[in-house]
Amino acid sequence: MTNRPSLDDIRRAPKVLLHDHLDGGLRPATIADLARETGYDGLPAADPDNLRTWFAEASDSGSLERYLETFEHTVGVMQTAEALTRVAYECAEDLASDGVVYAEVRYAPEQHTRNGLSLEQVVEAVLKGFADGGRDFGIRVGTLLTAMRHQARSMEIAELAVRYRDAGVVGFDIAGAEAGYPPTRHLDAFEYLQRENAHFTIHAGEAFGLPSIWQAIQWCGADRLGHGVRIIDDITDRDGERPQLGRLAAYVRDKRIPLEMCPSSNVQTGAAKSIAAHPIGPLRRLYFRVTVNTDNRLMSGTTLSEEFAKLVEAFDYGWDDLQWFTVNAMKSAFIGFDERLELINGVIKPGFAQLKWRSHA
């Protein structure tokens, strides 16, 4: 393909991010600063450059469990209201500088109460950071409150999400190691959210296979799937002329259930062998509701623009493909229909049209 989108041009494109963890996107310099300020002494390195290298190497193991261990240090420095507000504010700045116009950023409030903060104080501190950052950098950020699937606080966190949904919390999520902790353990929380007309996504089909996806959708009623890469296991002859979809894959496609795919992270955790072999290729060809995301920008050493650039390189995507992913994400966001439509028609499509025109000029 000629006129391939370059990384610089992709950074200028108005992008939408649905799957990004607040504790997975800290700046190394901020981690070092907060460790000094809060007295956290467990860092593997004190210098920001060395910290960045350590996180990259520790995250690139091919194991989801090892990948999750790196969060002990980022969460460790996020135990005060001031730290949470700073991290959220800088997250908004970093995303805006990468051309993201709308983002949903998730975090687990229960992980930030070690020094005495209440769940409400945690949520309010993060909301303040995003509100200030959104105002200063021109980005809209909604938050998802995450419950850890190996704990027993999902109902408490679900109630918290509903309580703050008019203040910037747009949805709910469960995360953590999938094996041994099926989403049905938290069925009461999902049923409560459905009764409250609230939105939720579930990490499923990343480290575990089709049963995880099936439970998330058919038992729990997930609006979206966090990752969902293993849906590819229900498609045969997927690289041939006539791929055959199993019943679950056909249901996911027919119902337009969004897949929050994170290419670099999926490779790091072993959910995909490489970017070129990532299921996003065949799933895009089959018109699943695929979205592109970062997951953890620090651990994966990435940005949303870089994720798109890797897909351009691997699959020869052009501007139409990148716009398709972006519109998919905006359609799948947990904000109101009018707001989504305004961003699609007023920001995303005009922004991509200008970039496409420039590339052909």
Rank of each mutant, 00 (worst) to 15 (best):
P263N: 06
T303G: 05
L245S: 06
L283C: 13
R289C: 12
K255C: 11
A276C: 09
H278K: 01
A272R: 12
V290L: 08
R297C: 01
D316N: 12
P263R: 05
R242H: 14
Y287Q: 10
G240C: 12
K310D: 12
G240M: 08
T303H: 00
S305E: 03
D237V: 15
K255G: 00
L259K: 13
G240D: 10
C262P: 00
A314Y: 02
R285K: 14
T302H: 00
V290R: 02
R247Q: 10
E260P: 04
F308A: 01
R238S: 09
R297G: 00
I280Q: 02
Y287S: 13
D295F: 11
P263D: 13
E260R: 11
R289T: 14
N296C: 08
S300V: 09
F308S: 10
H278P: 12
T269I: 15
M261D: 13
S265E: 07
G318H: 06
R256L: 01
G270K: 14
E241N: 14
A250G: 01
L283D: 04
P243G: 07
P263G: 03
P279V: 08
A309E: 05
D295T: 00
A249M: 04
R253G: 00
G246L: 11
Y287M: 13
I280A: 09
L248G: 05
A250R: 13
